[in-house]
Structure formats: C-alpha cells, structure tokens
C-alpha cells in the first residue's frame, strides 16, 4: 500500500506541471513508466489516483502505464538480457550474477492537458 504515497508524489508532480502550463487547464492523460523490478502495483496506482484526484483538474485523466522490463548484464560474460523474473539467469552462460540495468524505474514521463469544456 505504499502506492498511496507513490500516487501522491505523482499527483504533486503533475499538478505542478499543469499549473505551470496554465491554471485553467485540465489533465486528460498521464504517462508513467513503472519497472517490473519494483514493488508498485499499477492497479493500486489507478485506484488511488481516482480517489486522490476527486474534484481536481486532474480527475478523470487516463493513466498510461508502461511496464519496463527487467534488463540485466551478466557479470561473467557481459551479455545483456531481458528477464521476466527477478531471478537473473544469464541465457548465454548460465551465470546467476548480473547487474540490473533497467526495470527499477518509477517515472512520470509526461502529461496531456486540454482546455476545459
């Protein structure tokens, strides 16, 4: 349930961007990147977003969540590979020691804003 504080951070960030662009604007879409090697559950983000933005210009925006796959580099042979699992097993040499290059991301990429009806 730390998604609650994560969602609040997202909201603070996009509210800042929205009001900088024009205080009358409404947010129609939010683009997020969430790594697969995080402990953030996208469904909870959606639910909390809905809850926390009630009666604000952010409410009703569509949340586009891009799930970033885990990418790792094998320490033994240097091969880079994509892993569906947090158990990082090099497909080239079978070694189990690898550094995580991607998949830990938690990013607000962009928002889409529009004039209110």
């Amino acid at each position: 349930m730390h998604e609650l504080s994560v969602t609040q951070e997202i909201i603070d960030t996009i509210e800042q961007a929205r009001s900088d662009a024009g205080s009358h604007l409404i947010v129609t879409a939010v683009h997020l990147k969430i790594g697969r090697f995080t402990a953030v559950v996208p469904d909870y983000l959606r639910r909390y977003y809905e809850m926390l933005t009630q009666n604000t210009p952010l409410h009703g925006a569509e949340l586009h969540i891009e799930l970033v796959p885990i990418v790792a580099r094998c320490r033994a042979c240097g091969a880079e590979f994509v892993s569906d699992s947090p158990m990082l097993l090099c497909p080239e040499c079978g070694a189990t020691r690898a550094d995580v290059l991607a998949g830990r991301d938690l990013l607000v990429e962009s928002i889409e804003v529009d004039e209110p009806d």
Binding site: V6, A17, A21, L106, S110
Partner: peptide
Amino acid sequence: MEIKIVKKILE
C-alpha cells in the same frame, strides 16, 4: 497538448 516531465516519482 503534451507536456514532457520525465521525473523520478521518488525524487
């Protein structure tokens, strides 16, 4: 209109 942000959520 799209506004680029690219900011870490836990910044």
